[in-house]
Design a protein around this nucleic acid. Structure first.
Lengths: 165, 165
DNA sequence: CTGTTTATGTTATATTATAACAATCTCTGT
DNA sequence: ACAGAGATTGTTATAATATAACATAAACAG
């Protein structure tokens, strides 16, 4: 097994500096958008902040509820457009098995991402193990298939929840 | 790369004997249910037949529309319950990235399954490469995570569609 | 044949997502 | 500054996916 540099975002300890995670993510986002000529408007920036705020996958309508507290005219398209933008510049990932969204732990480098999702507490860890990604892609190509996007999501129990039922 | 015994269901050629696929699947389903003491009622059997009928992922409401032609009182719960049953005995898989369902190519053996999904024609191939499954599970366990279920879906272009845009 | 469990019917509603068009903002060239 | 073009957001409506809750009926165990 390769070393753990494949771990982009581990499960977080209870008392980690959450605010710092969010600030770092926003700083990285500014840089990514500047580099790509994408426009990180206040709305988009705020939605990204809300996504990171949870440090777990967040559903679109939960974001919408929060956003409505501060922006009365927010409607579903408001959120979905912001999410679409953030997906397009890869600042967030969509967790297909939850219909929810998480901040991308390493937006500066393109990657598919592999997600460990805890059934107990909802926490998510993001991996990027190139061995897995490559093996999957090789398998696909061996069948004449041209891979474009990988969705790899593992549900189970995080270390903290493994002890419980 | 290991040989192709990891391929449970390849992409199908145009003129393959589709009816035989469906009949074989229903036969296998009878056996699996008999073995597990699960009750494959006419309704559940019919829904499984409809899922296999398409030989591609089918959405719940498409199944419902079809079913309504022959069973007037069918409603969303009718379909969702049948699908839940079929999932529980692993006769079908849910494709998370499409909100759709496909017949399981090898219901007699428990497996997570890896899916190649063509953006062009919607066809799906099902793999079960133990190397991938094991590597993913090992990675998870190395982080103290207890894996329960793997969702691995690769979208791209099947051999027939790769030539096109 | 009777109570219990399993399966299905039925109505209503929750959740997730997009279509379509209007208004506003931003940026560019002049 | 101003006009035009393109991008972003507002607004209303609705589509698509899924489940809750309770009623009825079928299967089957004692």
């Amino acid at each position: 097994m390769a070393p753990n540099d494949a771990v982009l975002a581990p499960f977080r300890k209870q008392g980690h500096d959450h605010g710092k995670c969010v600030r770092d993510a926003l700083t990285a986002a500014e840089q990514v958008c500047a580099r790509e000529g994408a426009s990180l408007t206040p709305l988009r920036r705020r939605v990204l902040e809300l996504v990171w705020g949870a440090h777990a996958p967040v559903r679109a309508y939960d974001l919408l509820d929060t956003l409505r507290g501060e922006r009365r005219r927010a409607a579903p398209p408001t959120i979905y457009r912001a999410l679409d933008f953030l997906l397009s510049v890869r600042l967030i990932h969509r967790i297909e098995s939850l219909n929810a969204f998480v901040g991308c732990a390493d937006p500066k480098h393109s990657h598919g991402g592999q997600f460990l999702i805890c059934d107990g507490c909802g926490a998510v860890a993001e991996l990027d193990d190139p061995t897995i990604a490559r093996r999957v892609a090789d398998r696909a190509r061996a069948l004449g298939f041209t891979p474009r996007r990988q969705t790899i999501e593992i549900s189970g129990r995080c270390p903290d929840c493994a002890a419980d039922g």
